[in-house]
Simulated scan of single mutants.
Amino acid sequence: MGWSYSTQWRSKKQLVEYLTDSYRFGENQELLKSSVVGNNHWYLAKQKTTGEIWIGLDMMQSGREDGWGYKDLTASCGPVEVNCPISFLKEASEPDPDSYDAQWRKRVVSYHKSKRQKAKRSYEAGMVVQYDGTDYRLDRPAGSRRGWYVNRQPDGMLFRMNARQLGQAEIRGADH
C-alpha cells in the first residue's frame, strides 16, 4: 500500500474534495460522513449490499512539487492514528471482539479520554511541570495568548510555554 500523489491536487482542500467524491466509492458503497483532523481524513462508509458501516482513513501529506497525496486504510487493516472522531465509533458496525479494529477502537477511546483530562487541567503559579525532560516552574498566565510564562529549573531562565506544550507537559507538583 503506497501513497498516491497528483499535481491536480495543489492544495489540501482539492485533495479532500477528491476523497469525498461519490465516484471514488463506486456503486456498492456510500460515503456517509467525513471529517478532517490535521492531515487525517476520516470517513464513514456503508457497504450497500450488506449494510455494514465501516471507518476509513486517508492519511494526507504534501508532496510539494508533486502536489498533495494520500494513503488509504480501513480500521481493520491497521491505522496507528487515534484522532478519529469518537462519534464515528458509535455509528460504525461492531467489529469482531478479537480483531485489530476492536483493539484500535479502544486506543481511540483512550486517546479522547486523555485529551479531555488534559483539557480540564488547572494551573497555578508555582506548579512545576516537566516538558521534553526539563522542569519548568509556572510563573504567571500569558494572558490572551494562552499558555504560561515559565522559569526553567534550575537556571531560572524565563520562557513562554504555549498551551499545546503545556498540555503535553507532565505535572510534577508545586515548587517549595
Rank of each mutant, 00 (worst) to 15 (best):
R172T: 08
Q29R: 12
V108R: 06
V82C: 13
R64L: 14
D132V: 13
I86W: 05
L89W: 03
Q153V: 15
A142G: 13
Y149R: 10
H41G: 05
Y111V: 06
W3K: 15
K13C: 10
P154L: 09
A163F: 01
C77A: 12
L89C: 10
V37Y: 05
K115E: 09
I53N: 05
H112G: 08
R152D: 05
L89A: 07
N39V: 00
R164Q: 09
D101N: 10
A125D: 05
Y43R: 15
V82P: 01
T49K: 14
V150Y: 01
N151Y: 14
S87N: 04
I86F: 11
R152N: 07
H41C: 10
Y43P: 02
S22I: 11
D135N: 14
C77K: 11
Q47P: 00
Q117W: 07
G63D: 03
S22T: 09
N28S: 12
V36I: 04
P95C: 04
S144C: 05
K115M: 14
H41L: 09
K71Y: 13
G67T: 00
V82I: 14
L19S: 07
S6G: 12
R10Q: 15
Y123K: 02
A125T: 15
K120T: 11
S99H: 00
P85A: 05
K113V: 09
S35I: 00
V82N: 14
W3M: 14
N40G: 06
A92Y: 02
D21R: 02
N151D: 08
Y149C: 07
A174Q: 12
L166G: 04
A169T: 02
A125N: 07
G78N: 03
H41V: 01
S6Q: 02
R121P: 07
F88R: 09
A102N: 04
E91M: 07
M127Y: 07
S35N: 12
G38E: 05
K71T: 07
Q29A: 09
R137D: 02
W104M: 04
L19E: 11
W9T: 10
S144D: 08
D132M: 15
Y70Q: 05
S76V: 03
S34R: 00
M161C: 06
Y111H: 15
R10F: 11
M1H: 08
G69D: 09
L44V: 02
K120F: 08
Y70M: 13
R121Y: 12
A92S: 15
N28A: 14
S11G: 07
V80K: 15
S34I: 00
L19H: 09
L158Y: 04
G126A: 06
I171L: 10
E124M: 08
Y23T: 11
K120V: 04
V36C: 06
R116P: 00
Y131P: 01
Q165A: 07
K12V: 04
K33C: 12
S122D: 11
W54E: 05
